[in-house]
């Protein structure tokens, strides 16, 4: 009995290990991506209100002040 079932157990074990590995890889990749986004210069400034307030240049006023439609 044991000799016959062993390969089946092994196969199931490999499958579940693979699944876990894939999930871990996805988590790792999205974590890395999130980390890389956090590191980007764009995110650093554009998520910081104080920095944006300092860098923002108000537009020059224009003649017309309304939409047309």
């Amino acid at each position: 009995m044991i000799i016959i079932q062993l390969p089946k157990l092994k196969e199931a074990h490999v499958k579940s290990t693979l699944k876990i590995a894939i999930v871990l890889l996805i988590l790792l990749a999205s974590g890395l991506l999130y980390a890389s986004l956090q590191d980007s210069g764009c995110v650093r400034c554009h998520t910081d209100e104080a920095v944006m307030k300092r860098l923002f240049k108000p537009p020059l006023s224009s003649v017309s002040a309304e939409g047309e439609g």
């Binding site: 999205s30 999130y34 956090q38 995110v43 554009h46 998520t47 209100e49 944006m52 307030k53 923002f56």
Partner: peptide, 14 residues
């Protein structure tokens, strides 16, 4: 008006 250029950090990972 500068607030119009601020991105919600919480959106980035989701």
């Amino acid at each position: 008006m500068y607030l119009g250029f601020v991105v919600d950090k919480g959106l980035l990972g989701n």
